[in-house]
C-alpha cells in the first residue's frame, strides 16, 4: 500500500493557513455593518408601522423644517467626500493631507450633530418629545440612533487622528482608516433612508 506510507502532510494540510495580520478585518467589519443595517431596518419598520399614530398630537407637517434637513444632508454628503479624499491622501502616503481631510470631515460631522441636537431640542421645547405620541417615539428612536452612530464615528475619528499623529500611517492605522471609511459612508447611506422615509415622505 503506497498511500499508507505517505506522510500525512502530503494529503492533509497540517500547517494552518498563514494569513497576514488583518487580512479578514474588512470582511469582518462589513458583516458588522450588515448587522447594524438590520438593526436600522427594524427601526425603519417600527417607524413605518407607528409613523401615522399621532395620538391627536403634532404630525410631520407641523414639526419638520425641510431646509434644516437639507442643510444636514449637505453636511453629511460633504463629510463623505472629504473622508474619501482622506483615503486618497492615505494611499499616497501623505500623512499631513490625511490629517487635514480627516479634520474637515470631523468638522462636518460635528456640524451635523449640532443641527440635529438643535432640532431635537426645538421639538422637545414645542412639547413634541418622544413621550408625546407613538410617531414621535419612533422618530426619536430612529433618528436618535443614527445620530448616536455619527457621534461615535466622530469619537473614532478623533482617536484615529491622534494615533496617526503619533505613529504615522502604519499598516494598523491604514486598516483602521479603511474600517472607519466603511462606517462613515454606511451612515450616509442610512441617512438617505432617513431623509427620504421620515422627512420627505412625511411632508408630502
Amino acid at each position: 500500500m503506497n498511500t499508507a506510507t505517505q506522510a500525512p502532510g502530503d494529503f492533509w494540510e497540517v500547517e494552518p493557513h498563514h494569513h497576514h495580520e488583518g487580512a479578514s478585518t474588512s470582511i469582518g467589519f462589513w458583516i458588522y455593518l450588515m448587522s447594524d443595517c438590520l438593526m436600522f431596518a427594524v427601526l425603519f419598520a417600527v417607524f413605518g408601522v407607528l409613523g401615522g399614530s399621532y395620538a391627536a398630537g403634532p404630525g410631520p407637517k407641523d414639526l419638520f423644517d425641510l431646509e434644516l434637513v437639507a442643510l444636514n444632508t449637505a453636511f453629511l454628503l460633504l463629510s463623505s467626500i472629504t473622508y474619501g479624499f482622506a483615503m486618497l491622501a492615505m494611499v499616497k502616503e501623505n500623512t499631513r493631507g490625511t490629517l487635514m481631510w480627516l479634520g474637515i470631515t470631523l468638522v462636518f460631522g460635528l456640524l451635523f450633530l449640532a443641527v440635529e441636537i438643535y432640532e431635537f431640542q426645538h421639538l422637545i421645547h414645542l412639547g413634541a418629545g418622544p413621550q408625546r405620541s407613538a410617531f414621535l417615539s419612533a422618530f426619536f428612536a430612529l433618528v436618535g440612533t443614527h445620530g448616536l452612530h455619527v457621534a461615535f464615528g466622530c469619537l473614532w475619528l478623533v482617536t484615529l487622528m491622534i494615533q496617526i499623529r503619533q505613529r504615522g500611517l502604519i499598516p494598523a492605522n491604514r486598516r483602521r482608516l479603511a474600517c472607519l471609511s466603511m462606517f462613515w459612508h454606511f451612515l450616509d447611506v442610512i441617512w438617505i433612508g432617513v431623509f427620504t422615509f421620515v422627512y420627505l415622505l412625511g411632508m408630502i
Binding site: T25, L77, I81, V91, A178
Partner: peptide
Amino acid sequence: HHDDGHDHGSVRSYLTGF
C-alpha cells in the same frame, strides 16, 4: 502594496459619486 488589499477609488470616482 496595500495591506488591506482594497480598492480606494480615485478623485474622479469620488467626484462622480458626489
